[in-house]
Amino acid sequence: MSAFFDIIFSSHFGYSVLRVSTPILFAALGALISDKAGVINIALEGIMLISALTGVIFSAITGSAFFGLFMAVLFGGLVGLSLGYFSLNLKTNVILAAVAINLIAIGGTVFILYLVAGDKGISSSLASKVLPKINIPLLQNIPGIGPIFSGHNVLTYLAFLSVLFIWFFLYKTPLGLRIRAVGENEHAADSVGISVVKTRYIALTISGILAGFGGAYMSMGYVSWFSRDMVAGRGFIALAAEAMGGATPIGCMLTSLLFGFFDALANSLQLLKIPYEFVSMLPYVATVVGLVIYTIRKTEKIRRIQEKAAEGGNA
């Protein structure tokens, strides 16, 4: 047991929590934006996979990690946009369209990988680049805290900064207001002249861009290669994180950290001879439990409000 606490309270563990939370946080913010516009985006999983491969290919071609990142994010945005086209123009059920995108991503990335790298499993034959890590001056010298917060990949810092950006965007800008209005009540939004379709297009594109960052991080930060199915459900976990986070940016951050915690725990517990499969299950179990607790509290809250309203009505 003491070995267990040694692991959790080491600064190495704190560092890895932030490291593994990053892709989930990006995708959770993506889920948040589309949810606010009233669309469930389960294509996050596939978008991350596509972007992860795009980043690897373009960074290998150009030799520039940042160009790879740019293309990954661009592709993420484009896939988000096409999800918008399928669901808003072709009127495909958005969940089915996203299932289709995920299928295309799973098979398509392997297909492209085979054409580009001559391998169906891993991109190791491509000389892809990795995004730089940043050491924060002063902070890195503080013992205990420094090793946790300093020396992360540039995208890790961007992910946590994005929480602020997204909060500002959603609550302090006109476009953010429009997105929330469309999600809250599309007919009301429509009646005051907001284009529902256009707003949803924008929201899905931003959602894709955020997932694109998450995907790029997977193959150019988290590890330095692309491998098949490397996203491994993180896009789906992000959906759960967003729902559990009460559909707020800060909530998303906290729940992403929670999943990051379990993910990091899973990695560390392998050292303690606890079966690998059992430990790998943890983040997913935590997600279901968290989601259920969240929805139970939500239904009780609604019931209390209704009871209060009923009392008020009688008085």
Binding site: F86, N89, L90, K91, T92, N93, L96, A97, V99, A100, I101, L103, I104, I106, G107, G108, V110, F111, Y114, L115, K120
Partner: peptide
């Protein structure tokens, strides 16, 4: 030809079949 390309075809089938406005 790698066989994974079937996944791409399947995805297109889903999207078009489920697209209610296709041929509406």
């Amino acid at each position: 030809m790698p066989n994974e390309f079937v996944a791409i075809i399947q995805g297109i089938i889903i999207i078009l079949i489920a697209a209610t406005s296709f041929l509406s």
